[in-house]
Design a protein around this nucleic acid. Structure first.
Lengths: 105, 105
DNA sequence: TATATTTATCGTATATTTACGATGAACGAT
DNA sequence: ATCGTTCATCGTAAATATACGATAAATATA
């Protein structure tokens, strides 16, 4: 890619695409689902549930954090991740709006 | 990436991630919005509305077609693209389901 | 038939993503 | 203080994505 053209779109389009990108890997979908289901939200527990190395899981968590879909809270030597309900709602609304807008042929 | 680990997840997770991937570029978001708004759905018209070369737009259309979000119908020497309402609804429902499932911290 | 129009595909350059081992930093326990 | 645990980050390799010019294929038009 010679140069990115992403600046040429609206902020809304860029942001929505960015959220979609955060959701665009099955590991990250599974992380979101797992975070909600588990009692523990430690990274180690997530690693146990995923077919990926710890470093890779950490990288996926970073991507989800980047767009604000999750947050990590330090708890001693561990870190407890959880879904950011507010960001999640914002993303859901924006996607709903998009889907409603492009409804029909 | 030494080797892809995507097979290690559920079909639902893989499919949902794939749909998200199709939405993960502002050009593709804009294409979906534009397709719905325009009288014409020709590729040429889309190219005029986007800051991208024809070849690039064609590539983005291919990605949207890959996951079934749009369809192209041949009309003489032109091709008319439109949103696939059914796929769109399926994607919307799956995303809603995901967002509801992962609701809270 | 020759020419223009329309769109997909090829070839290619560069950027980004994905994955992992190794290492480092911060904390808790001994 | 030393050692184990927990997690992020670095370095790196390979795969994918993005972008474009050039070209091909198919149709429309002169």
């Amino acid at each position: 890619m010679a140069v990115s053209k992403k600046e040429e779109f609206t902020q809304e389009e860029i942001w929505l695409a960015d959220v979609a990108k955060a959701l665009s890997h099955p590991a990250r979908i599974k992380i979101l689902k797992t975070l909600n289901k588990m009692n523990s939200c430690m990274v180690g527990s997530l690693v146990n549930k995923l077919p990926l190395a710890q470093a890779t899981v950490s990288q996926h968590l970073k991507e989800l954090k980047r767009v604000g879909l999750i947050e990590g809270e330090i708890d001693g030597s561990k870190i407890c991740y959880c879904v950011n309900t507010k960001s999640l709602a914002k993303a859901k609304n924006a996607l709903d709006k998009l889907f409603n807008k492009i409804g029909c042929c």
